[in-house]
């Protein structure tokens, strides 16, 4: 199998026996991001995290939107679903709900997740569905040549912009917290090891997880550069008193308030690391299992609905399920009054 010719656009060699290595999660495709792009760091962190978690490629799905980050799934040897601009989250939602046994990740740009897809971003938080969202945050729309994205602050003029940005930035961390994500973190694309650890934590977390990954765009963003981030970034975990973990539901409001306050720091000093983790809130799958006992064992993808070409539902089943709509027709019984 190893000898199979790799065609242009083809699949990679299958994973070897035993422990998986990060390279087992790479397809042989040529990666067409700009040299020096922050996306490379994210890709590496992803495959390292997958390897360390030993994820089964068949059982893992990476869902993306449109733009430079949208190409990520093609470079990863696991299921990849490269969707529509803004819609990675709802596609992932359908996948995860229909087969909750799968590990589902969303990778998307800032424009994708917080611009055209902002409604879906909020909705995922409300559901706390067990999906990991990794946002490639470079503050610009790269593939369309550098327009301002929703995370670029007001008044900033990157080199591609004819005028300074006239719109305010959205605070991704605060938005994720307000929306209900139960794992909220910020990573940095060039700190691959740190990012890998965040991704591992996010995947292991049971519920909606969000990582805002600061990612310098070497081509269009000459403001938020590697040099800038080197000066500004500091680790939350360096503060021995920083404790983002909610241990009981009563702790949540205070921990969240602290995380929101922390998320307001943007400029000279930018914190990164884990802002908030609440494992106490039930995930959407758990909520569904409560409503539909047996759902986790027999989710939509695994139910048998056909037997020898016939429906598994019989007329007798219809009588029992929809009995309230059945009327006994009795023309003979008249004038009983």
């Amino acid at each position: 199998m190893e000898s199979r010719a790799v065609e242009q656009g083809g699949a990679p060699p299958p994973a070897g026996r035993g422990a998986r290595r990060p390279e087992d999660y790479r397809t042989p495709l040529w990666v067409d991001w700009c040299p020096g792009c922050g996306n490379f760091g994210i890709l590496t962190a992803l495959t390292q995290a997958f390897a360390e978690l030993g994820l089964e490629p068949r059982r893992t799905v990476v869902v993306s939107g449109i733009g430079c980050s949208g190409k990520t799934p093609h470079y990863i040897y696991a299921n990849g679903v490269h969707t529509l601009h803004g819609r990675a989250i709802p596609f992932a939602t359908g996948i995860k709900l229909a087969n909750p046994g799968l590990t589902v990740l969303v990778v998307g740009g800032d424009g994708d997740l917080l611009g055209i897809g902002a409604g879906h971003f909020v909705a995922l938080g409300r559901r706390n569905l067990d999906i990991t969202v990794i946002m490639h945050n470079n503050q610009v729309y790269g593939l369309t040549k550098g327009q301002a994205s929703p995370t670029l602050p007001y008044g900033v003029k990157t080199k591609a912009l004819p005028k300074p940005n006239i719109q305010d930035m959205v605070n991704p961390i605060a938005l994720a917290l307000a929306s209900g994500y139960t794992f909220v973190a910020r990573g940095y694309a060039l700190d691959v090891k740190g990012l890998k650890e965040l991704i591992k934590q996010a995947i292991r977390h049971r519920g909606a997880a969000f990582i805002d990954v600061l990612q310098p765009c070497v081509t269009y963003n000459d403001v938020y550069t590697v040099q800038f981030y080197r000066r500004a970034l500091y680790r939350l975990e360096d503060d021995p008193d920083w404790d983002p973990l909610v241990r009981s539901p009563e702790e949540a409001p205070e921990k969240m308030a602290r995380a929101v306050a922390k998320s307001m720091e943007w400029g000279e000093r930018i914190p990164y690391g884990v802002f908030y983790v609440d494992p106490t809130k039930p995930s959407f799958e758990e909520r569904l299992e409560k409503r539909l006992p047996g759902y986790l064992d027999q989710p939509p993808a695994l139910q048998r609905v056909e037997q020898a070409g016939k429906p598994t539902v019989t007329r007798e089943h219809l009588r029992r399920i929809f009995g309230e709509k059945i009327v006994q027709v009795n023309p003979a019984r008249r004038g009983r009054r």
């Binding site: 359908g94 229909a98 799968l102």
Partner: peptide
């Protein structure tokens, strides 16, 4: 989008 995602599984 969600219906499509479910169909893929």
């Amino acid at each position: 989008a969600a219906a499509i995602g479910a169909a893929l599984t």
